[in-house]
């Protein structure tokens, strides 16, 4: 099988996969015991309205139809590009989500880049300097940060850097009093949340890369390169690192969902107006269109990331067969 056909085969799997996710999510969300009408109007207000009025509201959201029909309606909304109308705000769900994307991109993008950069470097270095003080420090720190709950780290850092030292802002993307957007202001606000996100996510990848590196360093061609008398640095970073990157590439596709998990908590603490918070809030208040839209878009993002990582994997290591079965 050649590369093109492999890409096509994998690519064509994405659509049914997305379809599957959306059906799963749809069923899950509609299992919610939360009454969307009560969530929208408030418990007491809803109990004052007559049953006919409540039924009218439900009907206007299409909730009186059978489930499969509701799903079809949702699909047509996806095709129309608005993802339905948010129950809570009355705006198109896509617009609601789009409002949260910039903030999330800034935070998660920074977190992602930092995680990648730090893991590659620290992973490679601690593998190369195996069993030195540097390696051990790195190991111990990884263990510590892995074991620390992220919300806890966040509050400690806020306490230290914002309250005690007064260096950094407590929360938000800008000072509430700021009138216009300013990049330094945004960066200043970004430091703490991005740091917490990175510190709690990186350890796993550092360890992973370190282990991959060690495996590769033990391989024949590395021994050969060493035997040829190539400088150690060249051996590690030219030969070993490139090969150790292979599994890491796939993992990069996975880092995204990993980061979203952390982002929910971090966005709540830092009052960061991002997608993670939106997801949890709309899920808790049964805003079906927004939750569905978010799940759908996130899935696309994650699946694409994974897909691209696999392709990159192939490009870097042509030894691998393109077949689905590779045992």
């Amino acid at each position: 099988m050649d590369l093109g056909r492999y890409i096509f085969r994998r690519g064509s799997q994405l659509l049914p996969l997305l379809f599957g996710i959306s059906i799963l999510a749809f069923l899950l969300i509609h299992m919610s015991p939360v009454d969307p009408v009560e969530a929208r109007l408030g418990k007491e207000e809803a109990s004052l309205l007559s049953p006919e009025d409540l039924a009218g509201l439900r009907a206007s959201w299409g909730l009186d139809r059978p489930l499969y029909w509701q799903y079809i309606i949702w699909l047509t909304h996806v095709l129309q590009g608005d993802f339905g109308i948010s129950h809570l705000s009355g705006r198109p769900a896509l617009a609601v989500i789009a409002g949260c994307i910039p903030a999330t991109l800034v935070l998660m993008g920074t977190g992602y880049l930092l995680v990648v950069a730090i893991s590659i470097h620290l992973g490679a270095i601690s593998a190369k300097k195996r069993d030195t003080l540097l390696d051990h420090t790195c190991t111990v720190l990884s263990f510590i940060f892995y074991s620390t709950p992220n919300f806890w780290l966040a509050l400690i850092m806020v306490y230290l850097f914002s309250i005690k030292l007064g260096l950094l802002p407590v929360c938000g993307t800008a000072s509430p009093k700021a009138l216009a957007f300013s990049l330094p202001e945004l960066l200043r606000h970004l430091i703490l949340p991005a740091a917490v996100l990175t510190l709690t996510t990186s350890p796993w990848y550092i360890r992973f890369l370190r282990a991959s590196m060690l495996e590769v360093l033990a391989h024949d061609y590395v021994l050969l390169a060493r035997a040829k008398g190539l400088p150690e640095k060249t051996v590690v970073f030219r030969h070993a690192l490139r090969n150790a990157l292979l599994p890491f590439l796939t993992l990069l596709g996975l880092a995204f969902p990993h980061l979203i998990g952390g982002a929910v908590v971090i966005e709540t603490i830092f009052a960061w107006p991002g997608v993670g918070r939106l997801l949890v809030e709309s899920a808790l208040r049964a805003d079906y269109p927004v939750v569905m839209g978010l799940v759908f878009l996130l899935s696309i993002f994650v699946l694409l990331g994974n897909f691209l990582a696999d392709i990159a994997y192939l490009l870097v290591d042509p030894r691998i067969r393109y077949g689905g079965e590779s045992d």
Binding site: L155, V158, S162, I163, P169, V170, C171, G172, S175, P176, K177, T268, I269, F270, A271, P273, R277
Partner: peptide, 19 residues
């Protein structure tokens, strides 16, 4: 400016900081 801060601890910190 109505500032939306979901976490109460953070809200209190923002207040003591004068933001």
């Amino acid at each position: 400016v109505v500032s939306f801060i979901p976490d109460e601890n953070t809200r209190l910190l923002q207040l003591t900081k004068g933001e």
